[in-house]
Nucleic acid binder design. Structure first.
Length: 478
RNA sequence: CGGGACGUAGCACAGCUUGGUAGUGCGCUUGGUUCGGGACCAAGAGGUCAAGGGUUCGAAUCCCUUCGUUCCGACCA
């Protein structure tokens, strides 16, 4: 199926948030469906957002000693069966190739659902001494998981991501690494996406298959549902043992290294859409917006209009701003609506009235605020304006997050909070029975994480009444 | 994987009940007038009615199967 008619208004958020989301993904031309269920076409405008995320993360990764590598798409099935928890976690959702060169394959090939196994194999060959450690490497790729229900960016049978895989001499270093890259993701939210995250550690039930601990960043969507937006894992020595990675240590003894992995995916784009978007469509933070400023000429055939627009365009381009001059012959109203749908953070309007005064009108996507500037001021003002817009978007999202974390002392309170949307902040005894019970009694509420730096406000588990020392944020999640 | 809705031009849909020439609006192309919140006039182009099978003289329409989309659950980034 191809794109819908852009003239049709999108569904309002409060009428049907899920439908609104799908409408925005398609009408802002981020994504389209391919012939195979759960596999998407990433359109130029949508992919450009991903490239901004990649650019940011690549820089931050490199600063922390990470190198990019690339490993194969396929994993022999015989290799897959070694790490027990891992295989049990992923086997049901693997896509497997059984034919090659027109013949049945003796050892079928699994299309990677994640690359712990091949990284482990690669490291087995690369590492033989403590001098070869640490290994801090990352790859950008797509992975395939045969999902039952799929949604653009949030859950696809194939999705784009980065996966970092590291090896260390000691467990402390590994844990430190998992924390460091969790902070990178958190900063990416602050600096790039204008999305505030809750950072924390996953409960054992929500942990990555094969990990000792999983740390995550959780975002809160406009509708009050949570979205796990990135994870880092302390893998301990499990994979290294299963895949036979050893090194000769400082004491001339064979040792098993400690491993981590960490990843974020195109799901982050879903978070941006659902945190910032409104009834007019997408709202993009300037740092990830493929187009940061759009210039809309009014009565563009009148003398001087296009010249003035072109001048501003050239100046901004030279200043490194991602700018678009919409010189198409659509009406201004059409252009306003179109670029709002696509979430362009700042619009510059130049028409005869402005030109007469040597001015232009600047309109912010996030709140509709209009500023009138002289043509001379524009170039110098825009970088600051974009920063201000970023700040306004972040603060708006942060206010929404903070307003939707509510303490709950009983399961009834938890249910009420989760029905309304948002996080129920609750004490927890630490057992999975209570976690399961919450899910049952709140109709789908799950433990998102044990947030860092949040103090206990009671010592009683609201489910079983036993002693509790952990704070858990429960929410309904995507 | 269960339940609902859906699949006809690029998009949104009508036509199907009661089988008989493929329709409307938007978009697209060309020309002209417009232009400060999704403009208007005129002339055009564009379809194996999701796919496969069946019933029939004849199927978009009736029957069966498959695939895909979407929403709600269960499961997972």
């Amino acid at each position: 199926m191809a794109m819908q008619n852009k003239n049709d208004a999108i569904t309002a958020r409060d009428v049907d948030f899920a439908q609104w989301y799908t409408d925005v993904c398609r009408k802002a031309e981020l994504i389209d469906y391919s012939p195979v269920k759960g596999f998407s076409y990433y359109l130029p405008y949508g992919y450009a957002i991903w490239e901004e995320i990649q650019n940011y993360l690549n820089k931050e990764f490199r600063k922390r000693g990470s190198h990019n590598v690339y490993l194969p798409t396929v994993i022999p099935m015989s290799m897959f069966n070694k790490e027990k928890e891992h295989i049990e976690g992923f086997a049901p959702e693997c896509l497997v190739a059984t034919m090659g060169g027109g013949k049945q394959l003796e050892d079928p090939l699994i299309i990677r659902p994640t690359s712990e196994i091949l990284f482990s194999d690669m490291y087995r060959k690369m590492v033989s001494s403590y001098r070869d450690l640490p290994q801090i490497n990352n790859q950008w790729c797509s992975v395939v998981r045969w999902e039952k229900t799929t949604r653009p960016f949030l859950r696809g049978s194939e999705f784009l991501w980065q996966e970092g895989h590291c090896l260390f001499e000691t467990h402390d270093e590994a844990i430190q690494n998992a924390m460091t890259f969790l902070d990178v993701y958190d900063d990416c939210g602050k600096d790039l996406l204008a999305v505030p995250f809750v950072k924390g550690v996953k409960t054992p039930k929500e942990r990555f298959a094969g990990a000792l601990n999983t740390y995550s960043i959780e975002a809160l969507m406009h509708d009050g549902k949570a979205l796990q937006s990135g994870t880092t894992h302390d893998l301990g020595q499990g994979f290294a043992e299963a895949y036979d990675i050893k090194f000769l240590g400082r004491q001339n003894k064979l040792e098993v290294p400690f491993q981590t992995s960490w990843g974020v995916s195109t799901r982050m784009i879903g978070a941006v859409i659902m945190v910032h978007g409104d009834d007019n469509g997408l709202v993009l933070p300037p740092a990830v917006a493929p187009i940061q400023v759009v210039i809309v000429p009014i009565r563009q055939k009148e003398a001087g209009i296009m010249e003035a627009c072109t001048k501003v365009y050239e100046d901004l381009k030279a200043a490194g701003i991602r700018v678009k001059l919409d010189d198409s012959d659509k009406t201004p109203g059409w252009k306003f609506a179109e670029w709002e749908m696509k979430g362009v953070p700042l619009r510059v309007e130049i028409g005869p009235r402005d030109l007469a005064e040597g001015k232009a009108v600047l309109t912010r996507r996030v709140n509709g605020q209009k500023d009138t500037l002289t043509l001379e001021e524009i170039e110098a003002s825009i970088p600051g304006l974009l920063k201000e817009i970023h700040q306004q978007m972040y603060e708006k999202a942060l206010a929404h997050l903070n307003a939707n974390i509510t303490e709950a002392k009983t399961v009834e309170e938890m249910k009420a909070i989760l029905d309304k949307g948002g996080y129920a902040k609750a004490m927890w005894c630490g057992c999975q029975e209570c976690e399961d019970k919450v899910k049952e009694l709140t109709q789908g509420g799950t433990a998102r994480c044990v947030p860092f730096g949040v103090e206990a406000f009671s010592d009683v588990c609201p489910v079983c009444g036993k002693k509790a020392d952990k704070v858990v944020y429960f929410a309904k999640a995507y």
